[in-house]
């Protein structure tokens, strides 16, 4: 897991430097960081064993509604 975290931080840092040098808009950079962090959180939850399946979540909602 530590290897993944290190690789992710290096990749994110490198990409941020590139984006800032290319003078990309703040919106674009923030969207890039948001989606990168979302991916990071999803993978972290997999490594830590806290798997939350989106299918099961929506299944639970459908069952709760009674459909």
């Amino acid at each position: 897991m530590s290897g993944f975290i290190i690789c992710f931080l290096i990749g994110l840092g490198g990409s941020l430097v590139y984006l800032l040098r290319r003078k990309k808009s703040v919106k674009e950079i923030s969207l890039f960081v948001t989606f990168s962090l979302l991916g990071f959180i999803v993978w972290l939850s997999i490594f830590l064993g806290y798997k939350v399946s989106p299918d099961r979540f929506f299944g639970w909602i459908i069952d709760s509604i009674g459909l």
Partner: peptide, 20 residues
């Protein structure tokens, strides 16, 4: 481009989580 790249990480994670 910079929206598509981070989605690789996100979608591959979702693919693992989606079912057992």
């Amino acid at each position: 481009t910079w929206i598509a790249i981070p989605l690789v990480l996100f979608i591959s994670g979702i693919a693992i989580l989606t079912h057992e």
